[in-house]
Design a protein around this nucleic acid. Structure first.
Length: 334
DNA sequence: GTATGCTTTCGGC
DNA sequence: TTACGGCCGAAAGCATAC
């Protein structure tokens, strides 16, 4: 198990990921470490602390390998990415399979890591395909196989988690085939316009999201768990200061500025509260960002004297590139 | 009505 | 029976301008 330990007690935290052996015992990402220890008490399971910088560097090397095997490339998480091989394969699925097979081999020989790949006409189906044979799988979905491939429980569709699954069950829908029989109006009434139309299309394997390069982040945040729950600003302040400094440094490394500063307060009952403010113009000024984050936190504590904080965070959003801004200004002044 | 921008919440990994 | 991180992107919900 790889665990994220919090500052609270030696055992406080959650499981970040677990191997397939541990998963047989019900130990999966997100469960409390204490619960995982109970589930695994009869075994000699090993609990390791997370080493994010290490994983980031390995991830980056693997992403570079993937990117070199196709055209448009989109990183979708530390261990997930989309690669458009339409051109590289000339649209032939057997050629795409060969590309994927080669990529898997290169990744294994360079990094000793296996991965699962899904090849399909769009991102939605490729994601489902990569999920359906893990670990170390390679699944190809041809356009003719779509409906057959999609049959099964609704939760194989990304975006259908426990909440949506439960609401669909209320509508008498448990399989993708049943979902595909609902009309778009019913779905939009039940789930809203965006999710409703997504579900309607997803049940048919339809998706036209482009594979798009994400060059720069849209937000940066830092969060940490307090040693003890508190509503005392004098205790929260230095923690917030540290987080704000760290996230601002990261933003400066990226040569970016931010338009919004938010504070995040997770209370003792685990409810999440945020407060934010917009800065005009966008800034990379550490002093200003510190002042704003402190003021937001102070205002939040004043507005809810009952609030007892468990975790504290800060987020910078509305990020833009400093050089980009200069270029836009230069462009506008011409 | 539509576009746009802001704050807050949600959910994936 | 409970237990509980640190990120990220995007949607929801609301306000304003035209």
């Amino acid at each position: 198990m790889v665990c994220v330990y919090s500052a609270r007690t030696t055992e406080s935290g959650v499981v970040s990921t677990s191997n397939y052996e541990a998963r047989k015992y019900g130990v999966r990402a997100g469960i409390p470490i204490a619960r995982a220890k109970k589930l695994l008490e009869s075994t000699n399971a090993v609990f390791l602390p997370m080493n994010r910088p290490l994983y980031e560097s390995i991830s980056q090397r693997i992403m570079d390998l993937a990117e070199s095997h196709g055209d448009a490339f989109e990183k979708a998480g530390i261990d997930e990415a989309y690669l458009d091989v339409s051109k590289a394969s000339s649209g032939a699925y057997h050629a795409a399979r060969t590309i994927a097979s080669n990529l898997k081999q290169v990744i294994f020989s360079e990094e000793h890591i296996t991965c699962s790949v899904g090849i399909a006409p769009n991102k939605l189906l490729a994601k489902i395909a990569s999920d359906c044979a893990k670990p170390n799988g390679l699944t190809v979905v041809n356009p003719e196989q779509i409906q057959e491939f999609l049959s099964g429980p609704v939760n194989k569709i990304p975006g259908i988690g426990t909440k949506v699954e439960e609401r669909l069950k209320q509508l008498g829908v448990q399989s993708v085939d049943e979902l595909a029989r609902l009309n778009p109006i019913t779905l939009q009434d039940a789930f809203g316009r965006s999710l409703g139309s997504y579900l309607f299309r997803a049940a048919r394997g339809e998706d036209d999201e482009p594979v798009r390069e994400r060059v720069l982040p849209t937000q940066l945040s830092r969060i940490s768990t307090l040693k003890m729950n508190t509503s005392d600003f004098h205790i929260i302040r230095p923690v917030l200061k540290e987080l704000t400094q760290s996230v601002t440094e990261k933003m400066k490394e990226k040569e970016m500025s931010c338009k919004s500063v938010s504070i995040i307060a997770i209370l003792s009952d685990m409810t999440i509260h945020t407060r934010s403010t917009t800065l005009e113009p966008a800034t990379a000024d550490s002093r200003l960002i510190h002042e704003v984050s402190e003021r937001l936190m102070q205002q939040f504590l004043d507005s809810d004297p009952q609030a007892v904080l468990r975790r504290v965070g800060v987020k910078l959003s509305g990020l833009s590139s400093l050089s980009g801004q200069t270029n836009i200004k230069a462009f506008l002044s011409n």
